[in-house]
Simulated assay, not measured.
Amino acid sequence: MLAAMSRWEKLTGGASGEQYAARFVQLAEQDEDVHGEARLCATLVSPGARVLDAGCGTGRVLIRLAQLGYDGVGVDRDASMLAVARRNAPELTWLQADLSAFDPATAGVTTGFDLVVAAGNIFPLLAPGTEAAVAARLARALRPGGLLVAGFGLDREHLPVPPSLTLGEYDAYCGAAGLTLTDRFATWDADPYDGGGYAVSVHRR
């Protein structure tokens, strides 16, 4: 059963997959860097590591990681986004599920991921009140010592919706899930975090 409608679904109507994919195709054609998330993940775990792309959308990050030699699974609740991912990389595992109730075992996926990545403002776009549950679900999917990497906006400049989550709140949810903050960056290029409106946080189980 899916949870209450997420902020993403309220924003897009759950039918934005093709438009979202087209935007990144256009950026790539303009020689914009569209692989910063995958590049950072590749500095944190070695090729061959198991990666869970939480809120994978159209699969942009996971597909790039697979090209770099990683073993990955993508999960998202937006069917329109997953349709694009499955079309572009049918050989990968794509699961439709709500992150607040995601159980890899019932989905036929082995737990013990080396890294979970939540890119693209996943946490601020969840259904309100589910952030702690999602952090706990993702933490349980990790092996001991595994990493949760999440990047999201903190102000109106970096979010398509009004801000709803502070770093303090996010860290508290991660702490309650048994995760410890190890690094925080201002970008997916690992620039030092200076208190700005976007942060990439790395927590370890």
Rank of each mutant, 00 (worst) to 15 (best):
D183K: 15
A83I: 11
L138P: 02
V109W: 00
T111L: 14
R87A: 11
P104W: 00
P162G: 10
L115D: 00
T106G: 05
L126V: 07
Y170W: 14
V109M: 06
E91G: 12
A107I: 11
P124N: 04
T130M: 10
I122V: 15
R143E: 13
G151C: 06
Y193H: 07
S80A: 11
D103G: 03
D183V: 14
P192D: 08
A83Y: 06
R77M: 14
A105E: 15
T166W: 00
A79T: 14
A85Q: 03
D183R: 15
D103E: 13
A133E: 06
A97S: 13
V84F: 02
L99K: 00
H158S: 15
G153F: 01
S100G: 11
G120S: 08
G146D: 01
A119P: 11
A89M: 10
L125G: 02
A127F: 06
G168P: 01
D191I: 09
G145F: 02
L181D: 06
D183I: 13
I122H: 08
V116Q: 00
E91F: 13
L125Y: 03
G120P: 02
W188K: 02
Y170D: 04
S164P: 13
P163F: 12
V116S: 01
L148W: 02
E157P: 04
L147M: 12
F102P: 02
S100D: 13
D78S: 12
A141D: 05
A186E: 08
P144R: 07
N121D: 12
A139Y: 00
G178K: 05
R137P: 00
V84A: 00
T182N: 10
Y193K: 08
A107K: 14
C174M: 03
V117C: 12
E131I: 06
E169R: 12
L99Y: 03
P128N: 09
P163S: 14
A186T: 07
P144D: 03
E131L: 06
A139T: 02
F102R: 04
L165R: 02
L179T: 03
D114W: 01
L99R: 04
R86Y: 02
F113N: 00
A107T: 10
P144K: 12
R77S: 13
P162F: 06
F102G: 02
G153P: 05
D191Y: 10
A118H: 02
A107H: 15
T110L: 15
D183T: 13
V149S: 05
F152I: 11
A118W: 00
D191A: 14
R87N: 04
A127V: 09
R87Y: 07
T106Y: 10
N121K: 03
V149K: 00
L138S: 01
R184Y: 02
D191G: 12
A135C: 12
Y193V: 12
L95Y: 09
G108F: 06
L147Q: 05
F152V: 04
P162M: 08
A79N: 12
D98E: 09
S80G: 12
D189Q: 15
V117Q: 07
D103H: 03
E91T: 11
S164E: 14
A186F: 06
P144W: 11
G175W: 09
L92T: 01
A107S: 14
T187A: 10
A172E: 10
G151F: 04
S80V: 11
P163G: 12
R87K: 09
P128M: 09
A172D: 08
